[in-house]
């Protein structure tokens, strides 16, 4: 008998919700300080005004709308890169990992479900960002194609999660100093089009952008939410994300399987 995955997922969510809300002050602080980063970019956008409109034209011409989508959805990459490895490390440090690993639930399910709460919290944060942007700060999303945005979002989460699982595999073995996390975290903000369009970069640097999934994810999301592109018009971004997904999902699963086996051979699975 194996409990359906969604029921186990529900147990993990309840566990993390109770744990999170047991630190009430931290929970509200995190929500409160979200406003600060949004407002910072709002005033930067005000300062920039019409400058750079040439670069922003494909996204509607408004910098604040551009950057709001960038910072909101790049949160998924941060969560994916940190969520899995932090959940392993957190359980190792708390001492609860071993107790979970002697249950019939397999290791990859435990690690995946342990990071579920981070994704839920990120989604909640994205929603707050978008609501504040749309209702308080004048971001126009009246033409948004929500179905297309959802397709991009699903592909984004799967694709980023695969990178996060590869990152977690390194953590499982190395404990610290995961190169995948460092590589993607340091390159994505600069080359991924989070804060400015990649067309600002010199041509040879744009080549780097084209090998990062976040580039296609943010481009697709902006076109879907700000300009209401159809699925057909978004085909280049969707195809690129799909290719990344097809490559990265099996790679992530293989890497994690290898890492768990190696940690079990080395006897380091619960060490940190």
């Amino acid at each position: 008998m194996s409990l359906e995955i969604h029921k186990k997922a529900f147990s993990f969510i309840i566990r993390d919700l109770v744990l999170q809300t047991s630190y009430k002050f931290e929970f509200f602080l995190r929500l409160f300080f979200m406003f600060f980063s949004i407002l910072t970019f709002y005033f930067i956008a005000k300062l920039i005004g019409g400058a750079g409109v040439h670069y922003l034209e494909p996204y509607g011409g408004d910098y604040f709308s551009f950057v709001l989508i960038g910072i909101a959805f790049s949160g998924y990459l941060t969560t994916a890169l940190r969520g899995f490895s932090e959940s392993i490390r957190g359980e190792q440090m708390m001492g609860t990992l071993e107790a979970m690993l002697v249950t019939p639930t397999n290791t990859s399910t435990i690690i995946t479900l342990s990071s579920l709460w981070s994704f839920i919290f990120t989604s909640f944060r994205v929603l707050i960002y978008l609501l504040i942007g749309a209702f308080l700060l004048g971001v126009d999303m009246s033409n948004a194609n929500l179905v297309a945005a959802m397709v991009i979002l699903i592909l984004t989460i799967i694709c980023f999660s695969s990178i996060g699982i590869i990152s977690a595999s390194f953590i499982m073995i190395l404990k610290r100093g995961d190169p995948i996390n460092m590589l993607f975290m340091s390159t994505s903000e600069l080359f991924g089009g989070v804060l400015f369009p990649i067309t600002v970069l010199p041509g040879w640097l744009q080549n780097v952008s084209h090998i990062l999934p976040i580039t296609y994810s943010l481009s697709g999301m902006r076109h879907a939410l700000l300009q209401g592109y159809s699925l057909h018009a978004l085909a280049p971004d969707i195809t690129a994300l799909a290719v990344f997904t097809v490559v990265l999902v099996p790679l992530g699963l293989l890497a994690f399987k290898y890492a768990v086996k190696k940690a079990k051979v080395d006897g380091t699975i619960v060490q940190y």
Binding site: K8, I14, I110
Partner: peptide, 19 residues
């Protein structure tokens, strides 16, 4: 164990891992 969960919440969580 998860120290900030109750005893019952802890056991229920581990019970779900036992299917």
């Amino acid at each position: 164990f998860y120290w900030r969960l109750t005893g019952r919440q802890n056991l229920k969580f581990f019970a779900s891992l036992h299917n």
